[in-house]
Amino acid sequence: LLQGGDLSCVIRERQNSNKLFSEVQVLEWFIQLLLGVRYLHKRLVLHRDLKASNIFLKDGTLKIVVIVPGDFGVSRILLGALDFASTFTGTPHYMSPEVFTCSGYNSKSDIWSLGCVLYEICALDLAFDARSWVKLLMKIVHGPSPSLPESFSEELNHILHRMLNKDPMVRPSAAEILKLPYVAENVKVRSLFILTSL
């Protein structure tokens, strides 16, 4: 199960067993994803298509697939921290409200997509789904954000809701999420485990 393939395959396998991942496992992957997204955003790179099928898993380590401009991909390098992208790109189920409304977007759009991935890992289902494009758009732009299954902590659910805030200005950055006490404590535990395993 954890040896290879993309995250969407791993989630599908888990759906078949009808058993949710533990919060410990979710946090392990979530922290890896936050570190990867922080790395991209520090270099002013927008991913623009973060989704479970663009995240590969090998030996317990997640790797975000990034296709750089010039390779006919969807990632984009911003000119500066205040630059906004405006092209309509990405996978609809993971698109932020600002992408759907063509109102310009920045790194906070990737945070929305990462929130969708976090939800999918926890609930084994898409955060936003509908039978038509219009209904999906309405759900993402105007509908409520989903909550995690009850087996997950209030802290993780609160982080998810901040990531899926309709207002991108209110969404935290990857760096800010890593500093939240609940996440920071788990980063510390993970780092300590790595050091003691060497």
Rank of each mutant, 00 (worst) to 15 (best):
P146D: 03
E176V: 04
L40Y: 08
N157H: 00
D110E: 14
R48F: 10
L148W: 07
R14N: 05
S107I: 12
S197R: 09
L34P: 02
R12W: 00
S132N: 11
L1D: 13
D49N: 11
P146R: 05
V170S: 09
Q32S: 10
R171H: 12
Y94E: 06
N157M: 08
L46M: 06
S22Y: 02
L1C: 13
L136D: 09
L137A: 13
Y105C: 03
P181N: 11
L40G: 11
I111C: 06
D71S: 11
I31N: 14
G104V: 02
H41C: 14
L180C: 06
I11M: 02
R12D: 11
I11A: 03
S153E: 04
I194S: 08
F72C: 01
A52K: 03
E155K: 13
P149L: 02
H41W: 02
L136H: 07
Y182K: 06
R12Y: 00
F30W: 08
D110F: 05
F56M: 13
S53P: 08
G104S: 04
V68R: 04
I55Q: 15
N54W: 04
G115P: 07
S191K: 12
V134H: 14
L62Q: 08
F128V: 07
D110L: 05
V170F: 08
G73Y: 00
E154S: 12
L118F: 09
T87Y: 02
E28G: 03
N18L: 14
T101G: 10
